Amino acid sequence: MALKIKIAETKVVLLKLLICVIIFYLVYYVVLCICFTTFRLQMLDGLAPFDFKTKPSWINTYYLVLLVSLEITYFISGLLFVLVVEEWVWDYAITVTVIHIAVTSAVMSEFPLMMHWWAALGLGLISMICGGQCLAYYLFRDNFIYPILDDF
């Protein structure tokens, strides 16, 4: 079984990764602003995308804004990543998530150990990968890489 894959150059991969990280944080701040306006909250600080210390509660609107904006950001980013990376959305989604975890740890000066934050992050990652991969398949189904079965 032969698999013919053209491997991208490191510069191309890093450029696409940088574009994906920029898209992720631009979408995140836009969605945060919209959510803060929708929920009529006054305080939006620069640390909001990295805040994992807020106590989870369905009554706490600040927590709801952070949760809703994270999930919406992941889904929209997954759809936008398709335009940059085509069918390799899952790879870039996981890498951007690891970068987000590293940035969050650096900004908050602490590694996030809150289970609710990890659950929200995992759910967002799943929606990013599933939504992005579905759109990628729909848009680029003729260009997807399939194994060539020589001896079949």
Rank of each mutant, 00 (worst) to 15 (best):
G132M: 01
A2I: 13
K4P: 00
L41V: 05
K6H: 12
W118L: 02
K53R: 14
L135V: 09
V65L: 03
K4S: 09
V68A: 09
I99D: 08
C20S: 15
H116W: 10
Y25V: 03
K16M: 06
V98W: 11
A136N: 02
M114C: 00
L47C: 00
I19Y: 12
I7K: 15
C35E: 11
V65W: 05
V84L: 01
Q133A: 09
V30T: 06
T54A: 12
P112C: 03
W88V: 07
L17H: 04
F75E: 01
Q133H: 13
Q133R: 14
I22E: 04
L83T: 08
V84T: 14
Q133Y: 14
L14P: 01
L125K: 07
M115A: 14
K53D: 00
S69C: 04
I129L: 02
L83I: 05
L79W: 02
N143M: 08
D51L: 09
L26K: 01
V27C: 08
P112L: 03
I19R: 05
A8E: 15
I23C: 09
F140D: 03
L113A: 08
F152I: 11
L70D: 12
T37W: 14
L44Q: 06
L47S: 10
I148R: 07
D51R: 14
N60K: 05
T54Q: 09
W58K: 04
